[in-house]
Design a protein around this nucleic acid. Structure first.
Lengths: 309, 309
DNA sequence: TGCTGCAATAAGGATTCCTTATCAGATTGG
DNA sequence: CCAATCTGATAAGGAATCCTTATTGCAGCA
């Protein structure tokens, strides 16, 4: 049985005439007769009563008509959904990302994406850079957001593009550095406690922060790992328990009692990268997401990512 | 696009190999390659990434796979439903019947039928014999239950088979005819009020009852049309408002205060007939129903209807 | 390097599908 | 009442397609 049989059958059932059906299908009448006869033979059941002047559906034909229409509609819908998938309006999108950092911008981007593409099922998996590389290779994720970047990527059949480039910034209690004292340097906080944003997954990130302190401040920071959300740590900062060092983008929303200081002069910049497979195939959902992700970053932080598709 | 394309595509998607898919489909491998390539061409989208060692679905292919499976399942189900329809387990059954009479046996038969064939949509339309003939001709009903029978039927392209044949019986208040007085004759009630079961649709039926009284009792009955249900009329009978004449089958359930008397000696018998088209097609739901209907009649009342299919 | 397994491609043959031509039955019009 | 016409089924030939075998190109493996 083929869809042609169903198309011909439905046409005859709707026209209640083989000739009219043939006209509608732009074929000759015997073609329709034959196909319907074939279908009846395959089912082992008559679908029409032809009493040589009028054509009418049998009761079996009436039941089968529903199924035939449903099947044709299903086929049509399958094609339409494939087109939607090609436009990135339907399908899956799986992203691997590093948890504490992406909180600064990923939720916004995901919300905006969901608004534009409600039919796409988005999955975000938390994993470090090395795991992302694996997951990209075996197809578990389509896009990796991390900061190891080119080091890991180019070796494999992956590409890494800069996503974000910004200065580090420091948050401290307002009274810790009154506005009258001008711009602080990182070394001004060498004696403060450096609050860390999360216990786990912090190892690599804490290593990065330590490097920043060493290279730009010339001191060894005194870390204090407390809290698990940005908000809870910022409230500790406001209370004077310590300071928080992190990428500038982390501090987009003002917090009562906390002042933010961008470390412009520092040598170290914070960078993040998008990793993806050098796929033979453009994945529309992924590419749509990258566009939206770029737009939802503060202009100052964007790195160039719009160049290739 | 044909179902073959979908079958081949699904096979490749499940095996992730053109060769294995070809083996499963019992065709050579190039056939599968070509069909899948055709399908991709028609969709304008690649469904697989073939990177010359492994075959994997594209995201579009993943979306289309769902639709393809759904479509194939729908086609399979359509065939299965047609087979069910052929067995009379699915479909419609439309019956035309005369209201006051069929209450005696139709509800039981319908309930039993619904038990055996829950997927059949049964419609019962109330119409007199002449309307039934029309409705049979244009396909509105598949089966007519009436009592005009052969007179109307044979002229058209219809057949009428005897369904039911029974004596008339009379219901009266118990004290109206005490058990000690033996069997009553119809003429014993010539002075009583004859309650009629319904105002409308009663015209033909009342005419029949009048004929019975004239031929078997030799009197003109004094009709009183009251009530619209058998139960309400029987309660009136119990209260002594009158008697109720009708086919024996009408009085299957004993009622407090009412005694029933079968008019065995009467010349007039009550008959009902099944009418149906001399169809080119056996309608399975109808034929199943006729069997059940026959079984649900009291043995004494059945006429021969099991002979033809 | 040669071997094997895989998918794509080319070309020929087989199947099927559709076409034109014709038939049988039934209704319509003169 | 008979010809004309419309219906769907059937037969046969041609066209399109689908599938086959044979071959190529590519990648991993011994």
């Amino acid at each position: 049985m083929e869809l042609r049989h169903l198309r011909y059958f439905v046409a005859v059932a709707e026209e209640l005439s083989f000739r009219k059906a043939a006209r509608r299908l732009s074929v000759s009448e015997p073609a329709v007769s034959q196909q319907v006869a074939d279908l009846e033979g395959e089912l082992g059941q008559k679908l029409f009563n032809r009493d040589s002047r009028r054509v009418e559906l049998t009761e079996i034909g009436r039941v089968f008509l529903r199924g035939a229409r449903r099947t044709l509609a299903s086929a049509k819908e399958a094609v339409a959904q494939a087109q939607e998938a090609a436009a990135g309006e339907r399908g899956r999108l799986t992203i691997g990302s590093i948890d504490p950092l992406v909180h600064a911008f990923l939720p916004d981007a995901l919300a905006k994406f969901r608004e534009h593409f409600p039919l796409v099922e988005v999955t975000v998996l938390n994993m470090d850079d090395r795991t992302q590389v694996e997951a990209l290779a075996n197809g578990t994720i389509m896009l990796g957001i991390g900061w190891a970047g080119p080091n890991l990527a180019e070796s494999q059949s992956l590409t890494a593009k800069p996503l974000l480039r910004c200065s580090f910034a420091l948050a401290c209690a307002e009274h810790r550095w009154p506005a009258t004292r001008g711009k602080p340097k990182l070394s001004d906080f060498r004696e403060d406690n450096f609050l860390a944003i999360s216990t786990e997954a912090g190892s690599d990130f804490m290593h990065l922060l330590r490097t920043v302190c060493q290279r730009d401040g010339g001191f060894e920071p005194n870390f204090l790992t407390v809290g698990n959300s940005l908000e809870s740590i910022l409230s500790m900062v406001a209370a004077g328990r310590g300071v928080l060092l992190g990428p500038q983008i982390l501090f987009r929303h003002p917090t009562a009692g906390v002042s933010f200081h961008i470390l412009n002069g520092a040598k170290e910049k914070f960078k993040m990268f998008l990793m993806r497979r050098k796929m033979p195939e453009p994945v529309a959902t992924r590419d749509n997401f990258i566009k939206i992700l770029a737009q939802s970053l503060p202009r100052a932080c964007r790195a160039e990512i719009q160049d290739d598709k």
